[in-house]
Simulated scan of single mutants.
Amino acid sequence: MTWTFPNILTALRLMAAPLIAVMFLYFSRPYADGIAMALFIIASLTDFLDGYLARAWGQVTKLGTMLDPIADKAMVVIALMVIVGYSSMSPWLVLPTTVILFREVFVSGLREFLGDTAGTLKVTKLAKWKTATQMVAIAVLFSQGIFEHYLGMWSWGMDAEMVGQILSGDIPDELGLRFMFKGMIWSGNLGLVLLWIAALLTFVTGLDYFVKAAPHLKD
């Protein structure tokens, strides 16, 4: 196995995937959300960087080709698992997450069955957009958790009426509750929209992969 710099970046991204979940075991929220989001964003950036450097430096290896999709899928699956686990289990979040997780498991199993033949089924540009949209959606959803919990922390001890008056502007907002509330609403809605777009792209690319693999599945 050749441990080039791009391969090391890919391996670090793979190791960062379980750390996203571990953050919620050792840190309280919203600090866990913030650390997990920062870790996820940094790891996501290496997804572009390692591939770019491998091609630019002529260091494309079998190890890197194998690790890259595994690292991407591990990051997405674990991050979505954490987000859904700490959410209100809204169907608007659970349904697109289910589509994404099902596709990733299905395609991984299909690739394993096809063996060396899977290497001939090239990754499309739409699949790359799918991965990018997934990662942006997850980062935004992590930020929603940060806004939500700071809003709760800063309004601690206030009754619902007082919070409502602050948010409506009837009472001066000395703590910045309105900013946190707007951030929570906008990031939550934007994250869900992006996640549904990612789910649609995930479904389309999964179907495309199955159609291309179908000739190799005939007896």
Rank of each mutant, 00 (worst) to 15 (best):
P91T: 01
M1L: 08
W154C: 02
I185H: 09
G115E: 09
T4Y: 01
I42L: 15
A21L: 09
G164D: 12
A43Q: 06
F24A: 05
A198G: 10
F102A: 14
I42T: 13
A160N: 15
P69I: 11
I42C: 11
F203Y: 12
L101C: 02
M162L: 09
L19I: 14
V193N: 03
K122F: 00
Y31G: 01
L114H: 03
F210C: 07
L141Y: 00
D68E: 14
V163D: 05
E174K: 14
A21M: 06
V84S: 07
D33V: 01
D68T: 11
D72C: 01
N189K: 14
F24G: 01
M23H: 05
P96I: 08
V105H: 12
D208N: 13
D173T: 12
E174N: 15
L67E: 04
L14H: 08
F106W: 15
S28L: 07
A43T: 08
T61A: 13
F203T: 12
K128Q: 14
I70G: 02
Q59I: 00
V22S: 01
K218W: 00
L110I: 10
W156I: 08
T133N: 06
L53D: 00
Y86K: 10
F40M: 13
L167M: 10
H149W: 13
A74G: 04
L126R: 06
M180Y: 12
K128F: 08
A21G: 15
M89F: 15
W129P: 00
P18M: 02
L194G: 06
S28P: 04
L151I: 02
G206T: 12
W186A: 08
A213Q: 07
F210R: 06
H216Y: 13
I138N: 06
P215T: 11
I70F: 06
A198T: 07
P172N: 07
P30N: 11
K182C: 09
M75E: 03
K128R: 14
Y86R: 09
G58F: 04
T4C: 02
F113I: 00
T205M: 11
R103A: 07
T120G: 09
A74D: 01
T2N: 10
H149S: 10
L53M: 15
L126G: 00
A36L: 05
F203H: 03
P18I: 00
V163G: 02
I78S: 01
W186V: 09
L110Y: 10
N7M: 03
A16E: 10
Q165H: 03
P18F: 02
A43W: 05
V211R: 15
D47R: 05
D47W: 07
L201H: 05
L190H: 01
T120W: 06
L175Y: 12
F142K: 03
V204I: 15
A43P: 08
L25T: 13
V22W: 12
T124E: 12
P172A: 05
G119C: 09
I42V: 15
I35H: 03
V136F: 00
F24W: 05
V84T: 03
Q59N: 02
S108A: 10
M66I: 13
L200F: 14
G152V: 04
F48Q: 02
Q134I: 00
V76D: 06
F27L: 15
H149P: 03
L217I: 03
W156E: 13
R29I: 11
I146F: 10
P69F: 05
L25C: 09
T133Y: 06
M23T: 14
R29M: 09
V123K: 06
M37P: 02
V107T: 04
M135N: 09
R29V: 10
D68F: 10
T131K: 00
